[in-house]
Design a protein around this nucleic acid. Sequence first.
DNA 1: GTTAGCACTCGACCATTGAGAGTGCTAACC
DNA 2: GGTTAGCACTCTCAATGGTCGAGTGCTAAC
Lengths: 354, 354
Amino acid sequence: MARRKQRAAGPLDLRSAAILRAVIEEYVSTAMPVGSQTLVDRHRLSVSSATVRNVMADLERGGLLAHPHTSAGRVPTDAGYRSYVESIGEAVTLAPVQQLMIRHQFGQVEYASEQWFRLAAATLAGLTRAAGWATPAKPVRSRVKRIDLLAAGELIVSIVLVLAEGPVKQALVGVDEPLDQERLDAVAQALNARLEGKTTPEVGRIAEGDRRDRPADRLAAAAVERIHGLMRDYDAALVEDVFSEGLLNVMEQPEFDRSEKLRSVFRALQDRDYLGQLLGEIAGSGAVHVYIGSENPPLELREVSLVVAPYGRPGRAMGVIGVLGPRRMAYPHAISTVRFVSGLMNELVDHLYA
Amino acid sequence: MARRKQRAAGPLDLRSAAILRAVIEEYVSTAMPVGSQTLVDRHRLSVSSATVRNVMADLERGGLLAHPHTSAGRVPTDAGYRSYVESIGEAVTLAPVQQLMIRHQFGQVEYASEQWFRLAAATLAGLTRAAGWATPAKPVRSRVKRIDLLAAGELIVSIVLVLAEGPVKQALVGVDEPLDQERLDAVAQALNARLEGKTTPEVGRIAEGDRRDRPADRLAAAAVERIHGLMRDYDAALVEDVFSEGLLNVMEQPEFDRSEKLRSVFRALQDRDYLGQLLGEIAGSGAVHVYIGSENPPLELREVSLVVAPYGRPGRAMGVIGVLGPRRMAYPHAISTVRFVSGLMNELVDHLYA
DNA sequence: GTTAGCACTCGACCATTGAGAGTGCTAACC
DNA sequence: GGTTAGCACTCTCAATGGTCGAGTGCTAAC
């Protein structure tokens, strides 16, 4: 009873890697546990099913494959996917045809920044058949660029605040007596002179020492306070907004036929804190990162995988794009797609913040 | 074999109505088909289960109840819910405690309009345990209020367009040579002078006859064109945006345990065209409208019910709020909640557009 | 080290069964 | 006349058991 050599943690020999790869690719496309015979049939392996079984048993001992039950085929574990993903590494790139298609789509909306994120999310979703998402590039520290004060109601003034890297915020303040647009413009002009280029804490310091004699002064003081609040809120959120598309793709996957499984996907995409934290983790590297099932810290994400990449300019403004799908995901394709789209977003940001 | 009197289409006698009501309330709370005996037990009916069975058979002949199968209890049909909803009509109002709670929440964000819609959606979702949604009040015809031109990149100018009723739009245009902020402000001032108060078609007419000699003129022409485009897009969309909350509530309902059923809910909430059309239908009346299951024109909404109400000022700016949930919905509560929140939104709009 | 052969395991599928819930009908009752 | 008790009937649900087949692990031969 010669015991087969115990697999050591470490690189797989060629044949094992090929079989792991075959199992994963088969499982990714069929969603069914794969048996030794079907593997030999469909992947032209030059060994018999018995040998494949032996290798599979090895891989299982090594924790890369698993058995739903005795008489079922094998299924990749998270570690199995991980090994597979490492092995493909930087190699794959997106097919040139698809690169062209995406570039063309982005060309269409080049000058309507708000649409970029939607488009990025939609592109990722469409190409990977999973859920694509994108967060707008958010400045590390916001600065005031322009302030408008506009009459909204009898005693209500609408503040329009444009921040340095593009985003526009809006708020309302009440005034104690009506002010016509001309006087509002005068107040706005004074505010612009005082606040342009100021960061959030700088605005905060100004907010404190304000005189409140005339109605216009009181408006100015209230406006500064509101502006400071808007900026504080904006700075506090690591991720401003999340555009996601293609949730329906995920809903169609067999692993999500029960709606309980879907809840986690939802919560994840609504959880800006988590996405912000993710951005923090990967912002430095610039590369594509893959989080497979249980590699995701949040418990509720253990059923899904994330393929994410940052974009933007470190230290100035950064965002994340990514794909969320079942663990049974076509990783090489997802990775190359995310890599390409993040490159594209980088170009756009560079172009814009040149 | 005396045949029981055939139910004519028309008002139900008191006892039938009471039994229909009891069946519905029981079914709404348990999600199980309700039998004659349990009905007698739990609703203190002063008749025997046999009589209840006879009445139920009548109601079934009248199309108000249905039988999943022979030995199961009764389930309300869409027509049954309809009859029930008609019978409660305008009667119910929200409990004063809840009214106060809601008012208090709205007080907190009174001066941050963008949050209203989220809050309205969240409030509806929380109180009804279904999905709440709200669309911002959208002006019937948009008018230019203020235009800012801000340097974004070397050769890129960011246009910030504030429309009369509040919304802010943003776009980028390229310029052929760099312009400093001072010159941009000059161009913006000229644009404001020409465009303030103008409607979309008026802006369109201006767009046509523009001179394009100096760089500043070319920028102005391009800006007018982009502004016209933004306004056209904005006017074309009947509904600007949809804020929804509480989808998870719906996912937890037993009728949506299979994720295929959920897809329809998704598509519905993403389908701005449909919500816009809905707004068109109900904008005139101002009252709460209920669409039960198959009463919804779109096929994919046949599994759900909508309780909706318009808010705003007819002819000026209008939006919709509503609740989307399973047909098995607590209609009286949903209706009174929607009515109250739409009233609140009306107050806010009046206050703002006074 | 590889392969053929084989016993074994376990889920999927199907038919059967009994219990229980709820009905519709009939006949008696008020 | 409407109302009720009684009862046979229908149908779902859950449990049971048996067969089938896919796929395994092991062993012995190559």
